[in-house]
Simulated assay, not measured.
Amino acid sequence: MTAALLPIVEELFDATDHSERAHWLLAVPLDVLARERVHIRQALVKANFPEGLAYLEAEIASLCAVRGSDGLAPATTRSMRETARIVLGVAARGRPV
């Protein structure tokens, strides 16, 4: 890729299938998802990986959500994130989603 990308993000661009991309998304630090979301989104669009895009958006929404007095994001945001994680977990195992 280009010199502007973090090496960890280059790994996503170099992934050869959705299973590798899913594993990368589930393992990468959340701060990398937040900081590099534009490049990550580009990689997922280029790879035609809608499940990965849904996961990225769910994680970003959760990170940006106003938290309640209990310190948690709203239940709808948490539910959306967990659903996206489950779907991505299926993709990580190499099965069709």
Score class of each variant (00 low, 15 high):
58 A>L: 02
73 A>K: 05
50 P>H: 07
2 T>E: 13
89 G>D: 08
23 H>P: 00
76 T>G: 07
26 L>T: 11
4 A>C: 04
57 E>G: 06
29 P>L: 07
82 E>D: 15
74 P>D: 07
67 R>Y: 03
66 V>E: 15
90 V>E: 12
63 L>K: 05
30 L>E: 14
86 I>R: 10
19 S>N: 05
81 R>G: 00
52 G>P: 03
66 V>A: 15
57 E>K: 07
11 E>V: 11
94 G>K: 09
47 A>D: 02
72 L>I: 04
47 A>I: 05
25 L>S: 01
51 E>A: 04
76 T>R: 13
69 S>T: 14
86 I>K: 09
57 E>I: 02
62 S>G: 11
52 G>N: 00
15 A>K: 05
66 V>I: 13
30 L>K: 10
75 A>V: 15
34 A>S: 11
30 L>M: 09
90 V>L: 14
1 M>Y: 05
93 R>P: 03
62 S>H: 13
30 L>R: 14
12 L>V: 08
7 P>E: 09
16 T>D: 11
17 D>S: 06
62 S>E: 12
70 D>G: 05
23 H>C: 13
7 P>C: 09
72 L>D: 10
70 D>S: 11
42 Q>D: 14
5 L>Y: 05
67 R>N: 07
56 L>N: 00
2 T>P: 03
12 L>W: 01
13 F>E: 09
43 A>T: 00
10 E>R: 14
97 V>S: 06
86 I>Q: 11
61 A>C: 04
74 P>Y: 04
79 S>C: 11
14 D>F: 10
54 A>R: 03
8 I>P: 00
84 A>W: 00
92 A>C: 08
19 S>L: 04
45 V>I: 15
96 P>L: 05
74 P>L: 08
35 R>A: 15
52 G>T: 01
89 G>V: 03
24 W>E: 06
40 I>V: 15
31 D>G: 00
67 R>V: 14
88 L>K: 01
43 A>D: 03
19 S>E: 13
65 A>N: 06
47 A>M: 04
40 I>F: 03
93 R>D: 12
39 H>A: 14
16 T>S: 13
61 A>R: 13
53 L>E: 12
82 E>R: 14
88 L>I: 04
14 D>L: 14
19 S>Q: 13
18 H>M: 05
5 L>K: 10
78 R>W: 03
79 S>M: 12
16 T>C: 09
82 E>Q: 14
7 P>S: 09
21 R>C: 12
79 S>W: 05
79 S>G: 10
64 C>R: 15
64 C>F: 07
28 V>H: 06
61 A>T: 12
